[in-house]
């Protein structure tokens, strides 16, 4: 596994909020085409770590490189332009636009240029029948709601839309922050079904609370606790780790029951 090229390397990154150290000296390497997961109890620093990788926050200490290039001080746009794409824990879409226009915005930036002139001289309509967008709507079962304003969608549909927007741009690395939280079992399965198709030819990093759902297709699992990585390896290895048993399992009941039974 270590022979593979590095996609993301975080080197001793730290992020503090006032007196609280949300991410504490975290070093982490994500390899090309790896499908990795991060779990951890509430407030473990998973989202903050994501925010550091994607440029939402700048780290107080440490460096982040992407495909060998130092991106520590780069803006989110610069990282996106290099192939990083994320979703948000609280589903983030454009609620005042239709489903197809949401996808259109994602697609346009990635496949055309985002210069002002291109934005001004292309109509939204020109995107609506792009084969790639139509195909993505099929994949994510969004055809029926394509012209609906996103504010009228269910949480599951919104979540599918956000992931569809991320996958549509063919990112080099896909960072998903709790993509399954709050969804019904059938919706979880349909999202996992799509993600499975990308396993092996896309680098994916997933933050998840309910390990049971993603365990079988994660090649690697990292456990965070109070801003630190306390275990890293295959899912079995990570969960067997003594520190994980001690600190994580005691706190998070869902993870504990995960290995035993699926609700």
């Amino acid at each position: 596994m270590d022979g593979r090229a590095e996609t993301i390397r975080a080197d001793k990154v730290t992020k503090r909020f006032g007196g609280l150290t949300a991410v504490d000296q975290v070093s982490y390497v994500l390899h090309e085409n790896e499908v990795a997961g991060i779990i951890g109890s509430n407030g473990a620093g998973k989202t903050t770590f994501f925010n550091l990788l994607t440029g939402y926050y700048l780290p107080d200490e440490g460096t982040i490189s992407y495909c060998g290039e130092d991106v520590t001080r780069m803006t989110p746009q610069q990282r996106v332009a290099r192939g990083m794409m994320r979703t948000f824990q609280l589903t983030s879409t454009f609620d005042n636009l239709s489903v197809v226009d949401n996808l259109g915005l994602a697609y346009f930036r990635a496949h055309k240029k985002s210069g002002l002139m291109q934005l001004l001289f292309n109509t939204r309509k020109s995107q609506r029948n792009e084969p790639k967008i139509v195909q993505t709507m099929d994949t994510f079962d969004l055809q029926d709601v394509r012209d609906r304003e996103v504010k009228n969608l269910s949480l599951g549909e919104k979540r599918r839309l956000e992931i569809a927007m991320a996958i549509l741009v063919d990112p080099k690395v896909l960072l998903l922050d709790e993509p399954l939280a709050g969804l019904a079992e059938s919706e979880i399965q349909s999202i996992l079904g799509v993600l499975r198709k990308h396993v092996g030819h896309q680098t994916i990093l997933i933050v998840e609370h309910k390990l049971s759902h993603v365990q079988d297709f994660l090649q690697r699992l990292t456990v965070m606790h109070e801003g630190r990585i306390i275990a890293d390896g295959t899912a079995e290895e990570a969960l067997r780790h003594p520190e994980v048993r001690r600190s994580y399992w005691q706190i998070d009941v869902t993870a504990e029951s995960a290995g035993v039974a699926t609700p």
């Binding site: 989110p76 746009q77 948000f88 454009f94 636009l97 915005l105 930036r109 292309n122 939204r124």
Partner: peptide, 25 residues
């Protein structure tokens, strides 16, 4: 309103973060 730029404006109105993380300025 009909242009991609118009969609960007509407997007920026309610969700700047998303627009940024799709790569728009």
């Amino acid at each position: 309103d009909d242009s991609i730029y118009g969609a960007c404006c509407l997007g920026a109105k309610i969700n700047e973060d998303k627009l940024t993380f799709l790569g728009y300025d």
